[in-house]
Amino acid sequence: MSAIAATPDAAEYSTRRLPGDQDVWIFIIAELLMFGAFFIAYIVNRAGEVDLFNASQLTLDRSFGVVNTLLLVTSSWAVVEAAAAVRGNRAALAPCYLLIAIGLGVAFIVVKFFEYSAKFEAGLSMTTNTFYMFYFCLTMIHLAHVVVGTIILIVMWTNARNGNYAAAHTKGLETGASYWHMVDLLWIFLFALLYLLR
């Protein structure tokens, strides 16, 4: 038995570690498969109506997309810093980083509100054409994930303030962080598909 444990593969495996709860990773994979199917459905539909998709895409304000990308990427970074602070026995810093992450998540939601408002005022909706059906459906499903993720961050912030995280107790923090990074990852592809690829 000890001979098996001493093999290089076993030793390497024992040093490799999945952060957080394994169950959240199963959930994240399911989400990625669902969004992967959405992305492929979008590009396949686009191939059938290239001119319509290109013309409709020009009505989007790419600045909103860029700002939201920077907000989510920076929010993800703040969550990574919170986890690093807890692991480095600087847990007192974690609530500050999580508060930054929450603020940036809320900012993403506010930017989306203004973006949708401008579209509705211009008479554009989910029923305008196939491009806008995808634009509203995909970004609204993603926005729901941002809202849920922001609520999770608030729970994490409360836990951090109450001193529930420490170098030896990072599982809850890592589990919530993994979900938030998934929200970031999905937006990277949505931004490229909806706002940039013509």
């Binding site: 040093t15 490799r16 570690r17 999945l18 952060p19 993800s76 970074w77 969550v79 990574v80 890592e174 993994s178 990074h181 998934m182 970031d184 990852l185 990277i188």
Partner: peptide, 11 residues
């Protein structure tokens, strides 16, 4: 994001 933020580089 997957390797450095989600920390799967050493998973």
């Amino acid at each position: 994001i997957v390797l450095d933020f989600m920390e799967l580089r050493h998973a």
